[in-house]
Design a protein around this nucleic acid. Sequence first.
DNA 1: ATTGATATTATGTATAGACATAATAATTTG
DNA 2: CAAATTATTATGTCTATACATAATATCAAT
Lengths: 233, 233
Amino acid sequence: MSTAQPAGWQAIQAEVLRRVHAREWPPGHVIPGEIDLAVEFGCARATVNRALQALADEGILERRRKAGTRVAKFPVGRAVLDIPVIRQDIKERGLAYDYRLSHRSVAEPDVDLAARLRTTKPALHIRAVHLADGIPFVLEDRWINLQTVPQAKTQSFEDLSANEWLLHTVPYTKIDVSLSAEAASAEDAPLLGLAPGKPVFTIERTTWDHVASVTFVTLTYAPGFALRTQIGG
Amino acid sequence: MSTAQPAGWQAIQAEVLRRVHAREWPPGHVIPGEIDLAVEFGCARATVNRALQALADEGILERRRKAGTRVAKFPVGRAVLDIPVIRQDIKERGLAYDYRLSHRSVAEPDVDLAARLRTTKPALHIRAVHLADGIPFVLEDRWINLQTVPQAKTQSFEDLSANEWLLHTVPYTKIDVSLSAEAASAEDAPLLGLAPGKPVFTIERTTWDHVASVTFVTLTYAPGFALRTQIGG
DNA sequence: ATTGATATTATGTATAGACATAATAATTTG
DNA sequence: CAAATTATTATGTCTATACATAATATCAAT
């Protein structure tokens, strides 16, 4: 009765969400079928379907044919993390962005890296610093697979970060991401104004074009950095 | 021509994705309108709409009325992180789960916590250890707002973790999540078999029911833990 | 040329109806 | 009784059509 006239599928989504949050439909509860809800809300079944499917995508509901739709027992976290493009991230914080290349070489990958890139051929190794208001914000340590991206050989990466150059020139289909806490290496620590061994937030990414590796990058963030997000909201 | 007969909206999504990945439609490119694509794929416009909308939700495409649909300039990271329910997480790793309550008290929040919970009234403080195959996997340090959740007073939390009890009994509408690297505290370090100051991966969560805080929890993970996810794929 | 009204256009959403599919329930068979 | 078969049912998806909405393009008036 509270939400009498449905305005659209989002209104239905909101009302269903309200009932879930209010525990009118507690976790595990099987909610009415699409037809029943369509009658109640005075709309077509497809409209209810749209609303429920969106909630299922978010992990709030679980749907199975014939069995019906139930409230997820663990309506837990499906957090959407926006992995930021570094330059944009810094700018959005209202800080001045700057970038400095500190190393560029072609080298043979060690065992660990060879496993990650799935090649033992020489790869392009790049190290760079991204600064916010002149202070190191994140260190980029990147290996680029020259079998997959031979054009990288002719790029200096002195003005344009490899991050952005790759994004705009090289196709990819998949990225593996890993977030962890690491001890600052002897090499990285001084750049971040830290003693070696201090905790640093680290993002590792391997980028793939189908089955071929494109690049492997380790981003080491300055202390104080935290990745924030919201569930629900 | 390659994908001639469309099977459904997912087939269309796949073909559009292929063209984006293959740079047939490079970043920033305005792709054909829904009607054109519907003709090309021999299906209804609604089917194309479903496919394109799903890709827009994932951040691959950007859509604006009248302006049309274009490939996102930064088809970057919209990583879906599944914040795990601890017990399930451990079980999925094929390890035996165990749980031990180590502290339970009612105390007044300090300034920092009062700001997080938005109350200065006494709150329930709980510390517990989640073990995998008998080894500490994650430490849980939780404060429960007793204004919002008075029922928590009568719960011992000796057998059932606060994590799961809350999930099943208390309504919530929003969770703030923060991921960071911290130095292991003098209190936590020995439990994880670490020297104080060593890096530990930390998840902080504040749970809200509308504007009222429900609980604030800090999860401190054992070394070696990494949160993994995938973009694309 | 600038402003403001109007037309155009691409996406957004709703509809009824239809058939597909998967999973459960009911029934028949060995 | 257990196993195999069939019926039923709720969701999944597609279609054709219609109207809504937002943003742009066009054109008229000042």
